[in-house]
Computed example of a mutant assay.
Amino acid sequence: MALEYRPWREGDDQELLQIWGDPEGSQNAWYRQTLEPSNDGGVQLDGSRRNWKRCIVATDQGIPVAAGVVMEQSLHSARLTAYVEVAKDHRRQGVGATLLTMLRHEAEQAPSGVRELTTKVDQGTSGAAFAEALGWSVIQASRLIQVEPASLSLPRFPKREDQADEDAGADLVQDLATGSVELTDVVGRWYESVHRDWSPTGPLSPGMVQSYFLADATGAQGAIVLRAEPESAFGGSVAPSRKGRIRAFAVSYGPHPAAAPSNDPPADVLLGWEAGLSAEDAAAAVRDLVALVAYQHPVVLEVDSSMAALTGLVDPLIAAGKARQLGASTLIVAG
């Protein structure tokens, strides 16, 4: 076998997809979409920004059989993202390792100065086995958890003297526009906090938070927030004059694509909490908000191991048969 290695060319994707066949998992499917001609990044003619990227193809007698990509990231910029895929009949022959070595060499030219690599693999796939063989370490595990309806009892909210019974909690549970400055702030600080120890983002600008999580282009359809008790600007003896701060939020993106077809498809929900809450308060806020959003309909939550308030809630639900994992876990590895 005499392989040749060259930069990616237009049309390589069509040939490779025929040889590779169906992706092994969701991460393979996503990374295949990143394979394209190399670019130097920076501001484009239309004013948009592109991340620096290098893409290499391995050919056997002129036919593409493997490819790899290394690229800078915007949100998690402390590491470069890398991906390698090799046709099944060319595996275990050093092709993947050679591609990775070449990608590391290309990474020396990344304008950010970042050199460490990371990637995501579906647990139990050949990609996970390859990463393990390379000695890459798992820095995080992520699961999609479907919570079934009415798995948790509804929270009981206090009622003010001037409120009817049906209005109890009206000051605490509210719909909020996804363009809200208040929501944007709490989502950004929460995301920073749950990634700080393993894939730091640094401070996220409101524009970045909107672009990645809340803008119309993300599919965000609406948000519900759980607030603390309304506050008084003049002390406890005076009626509250301002809203309580957000304790937890849930952003819905419509039916989750990973769920099985159903007459009642689960909603894809991003659920987080105020980063400044204590562990106990965060857990309580998350429990109450999950109970509310999953009371009548199922929801799917992405749960990273670093999200203690969520893992502490969903793991007992899974054990009790009131929640279940969809698909394999995603492992984030670095090396």
Rank of each mutant, 00 (worst) to 15 (best):
G272Y: 07
S306L: 04
D304F: 09
A285Y: 03
V299G: 06
A284P: 00
L310F: 01
P266H: 03
E274I: 00
A285G: 03
V299A: 12
L271P: 08
V300H: 11
V286K: 14
A279D: 09
G276N: 07
A309I: 06
D304S: 12
Q296F: 09
A285E: 06
V303Y: 08
S278L: 10
L270V: 12
V286Y: 12
S306E: 06
A284R: 13
V290A: 03
A284D: 12
L271C: 05
V314L: 02
V314C: 00
G272Q: 10
G312M: 05
T311Q: 05
E280L: 01
T311V: 12
G272T: 11
L270E: 13
P265R: 01
P265Q: 04
E274G: 01
A309T: 04
A267F: 07
L277V: 05
A285R: 00
D315G: 07
L313A: 11
E302L: 09
D281I: 04
V299M: 09
A282T: 03
A308F: 06
S278Y: 11
V293L: 10
V269K: 12
L289N: 15
V286G: 09
H297V: 13
M307E: 13
A283C: 10
L289T: 14
V300Y: 03
A267R: 15
H297G: 12
A267I: 06
S278M: 08
W273S: 11
A308S: 09
W273D: 09
L310P: 01
G276W: 04
A282E: 06
A275T: 03
V293M: 09
P266M: 01
S305V: 04
V299W: 05
A279P: 04
L292M: 15
P265G: 00
E280V: 10
A267G: 10
L301E: 02
G312N: 00
L292N: 10
E302I: 08
L271R: 04
Q296C: 08
L301K: 11
L271F: 11
L271W: 02
L289R: 14
A283P: 12
A284G: 06
A291L: 11
A309H: 01
D315P: 06
W273C: 13
V300K: 10
S305K: 00
D304W: 08
A291K: 12
A283H: 07
L292G: 12
A291P: 15
L301H: 07
A294V: 01
D288E: 15
G312P: 04
A291D: 09
D281K: 06
A284F: 03
V314R: 05
H297A: 15
A279Y: 01
A283G: 13
L289A: 15
Y295A: 11
P266N: 12
L313N: 07
A285F: 02
S306A: 14
D315I: 07
A282D: 08
A283E: 07
P265Y: 00
L310G: 05
L310H: 02
